[in-house]
Design a protein around this nucleic acid. Sequence first.
DNA 1: ATTGTCGCGCAACTGAGTTGCAAAATCTAT
DNA 2: ATAGATTTTGCAACTCAGTTGCGCGACAAT
Lengths: 155, 155
Amino acid sequence: MAIEVDDILRRNSLSVTDSRKKILSLFLSIHGALAHGDIERKAGEKFDRVTVYRTLQTFVEKGIIHTIPTTDNSVRYALCKDNCTEGHHHDNHIHFICMQCGSTLCLEEVLVPEVRLPKGFTSSEIEVVIKGICKECNNKKNSPIVETAGLRLRL
Amino acid sequence: MAIEVDDILRRNSLSVTDSRKKILSLFLSIHGALAHGDIERKAGEKFDRVTVYRTLQTFVEKGIIHTIPTTDNSVRYALCKDNCTEGHHHDNHIHFICMQCGSTLCLEEVLVPEVRLPKGFTSSEIEVVIKGICKECNNKKNSPIVETAGLRLRL
DNA sequence: ATTGTCGCGCAACTGAGTTGCAAAATCTAT
DNA sequence: ATAGATTTTGCAACTCAGTTGCGCGACAAT
């Protein structure tokens, strides 16, 4: 993993530093999106806030990660799947926010639908964010309820 | 107009105050969305920032206006078309942000498209934000350029 | 007139994000 | 491996959006 991280950084002509390695590997290890706060927390209090901000900014510029808009007005970041190897691409997938576990996911397999705009309008970018319950949370909900000695547990 | 404004406020069981009247009539007079800053400016420096925040919050709660998420992480508000008369409704229209004039519009006539989610996911809310060039800006761009005495003007 | 409710404005605060600058780390070429 | 150039980091200080607490004034009901 460490090698992979170094590689990605170098491919994007970025100096290989501790903070960049740490933050990038966080993204690689986590399935989903991260907010600035998450990163600060999970990075283990080791880096300055400013460093995290600047690192994220750099990654966005290089097309390593992309931002996801949310209704509650907080920015989250996620890895650009094909981008780590290539240059910029315009995202054409949708984003999903689970209202139960709070995680934000890129649904890479769901393409942004066609939208027919009124006459005169031209579009260059479409953002689709869906809120709901994710697969895992739905699974939990549907799992059988076990009753033991008065306790009701969900598996 | 003033009467209409009073009416809307009363229908939502809100006291009729200067700030509410002013802010609501701003929304009624403007075709598009407003950010908090816009309102403070256009209201004529007369109201306290806090009052504007609280008024917007109240309007959102009452379903008079709704929020629009933007990629640049700023919240904008727009009138709920049918909501002024009724209660809450779940928006099913898309939002458009013009990258030239910066205005945000509710495209009431464009319905949110169907999206097929992967197995296991359930959705409760879909947000679609499209960036591009709006009708008016496109019209301007296509209008003939007039050259007069060395000046190049777009009509 | 008295009480209660509601909205407003002020002041003070919080928290996210930014900027400037000096020190530290990284890279490059020898 | 090292010196010098370049980049990145961390600190401090700042800005700006948004929030909270509180007292005052307006209005309504009694």
